[in-house]
Amino acid sequence: MESETVDGVTLETWTPQEVHDALAEGQIVLIDVRTPQEYMFEHVVGSLLMPMSFFAPRYLPSQGTKRIVLHCGSGVRSEKMARAAIAAGIDKIAHMGGGFGAWKEAKLPYMGTDMGTGAPSMVNPE
């Protein structure tokens, strides 16, 4: 995990493996900021959708015991939204470096689409 200070708040950048492990342990809320179409085509199982075009930090879930981690396709949109959350007063926020592309490069499982049927299909690239 890398971190930097933005307006006095620590912005964390997590690796896909760190996100995978923390999600499996129930330690984080993973929020996908991609479009609904991108999410429906393929997404991390257990992630919530809050598209960048509708992103409003005031609607983020409470962080009582879980860290919020944002992700997108490449890490650009999620970092931008993490910075917007900090500007809105959120003091615990992280994003996944490299986004969903890095998740797939790390050969982590995700929900995809069976191109033959159009149905959701679990992808376990290991």
Rank of each mutant, 00 (worst) to 15 (best):
V123M: 04
P16T: 12
E42R: 04
S121H: 08
P51I: 03
F55S: 00
A56D: 11
T113M: 11
Q37P: 06
R83L: 06
W103H: 05
T117A: 10
C72I: 13
R77G: 05
V45Y: 04
Q27E: 14
D91H: 02
L11W: 00
E79M: 12
T5P: 09
E38I: 13
G73N: 10
L60E: 01
T13H: 05
M81I: 09
V45N: 15
P120A: 11
A56C: 12
L30A: 13
G26H: 12
R67H: 11
I93A: 10
S62E: 12
E4F: 01
E42L: 07
R58L: 03
I31L: 12
M52T: 12
G101F: 01
Q63N: 02
M96L: 11
K80S: 09
G46N: 13
S53K: 12
E2S: 12
R34E: 12
S121K: 15
P51G: 02
P16L: 09
M115D: 07
T5H: 04
T10S: 13
C72K: 04
Q27W: 12
G99C: 07
S74V: 14
Q27K: 15
T13L: 14
L108Q: 11
G46L: 04
H20C: 00
E42F: 06
A82P: 09
V69F: 15
S62M: 03
H20W: 15
A88M: 02
D21E: 10
K104T: 14
G101K: 13
T5I: 13
G46P: 07
A119E: 15
F54E: 12
P36Y: 04
T35R: 01
E12I: 02
G64I: 07
T10W: 00
M40G: 08
R58I: 06
S53P: 10
V69Y: 15
L60Y: 14
P16D: 08
K104S: 10
G101I: 07
K66M: 05
T15R: 06
L108K: 07
E4V: 15
K80Y: 02
A102Q: 08
P120K: 08
M122F: 02
N124S: 10
E126C: 03
G118T: 06
M96C: 07
S62T: 13
L30Y: 13
G89M: 01
V19K: 02
G64T: 11
A56V: 15
Q27H: 14
M122E: 10
P57C: 01
V33N: 03
V6E: 05
L30S: 09
E25R: 15
T10L: 15
M115P: 04
G98H: 10
G97D: 03
V45H: 11
S47Y: 08
P120M: 10
L70C: 07
D32A: 13
L60T: 09
G73V: 06
W14Q: 04
I86H: 00
A24P: 00
V29S: 03
V6H: 00
V69K: 00
V123T: 09
G116Y: 00
K107P: 00
E4I: 10
E25Y: 09
N124K: 13
D7A: 06
M40A: 15
T65R: 14
C72E: 06
Y59I: 08
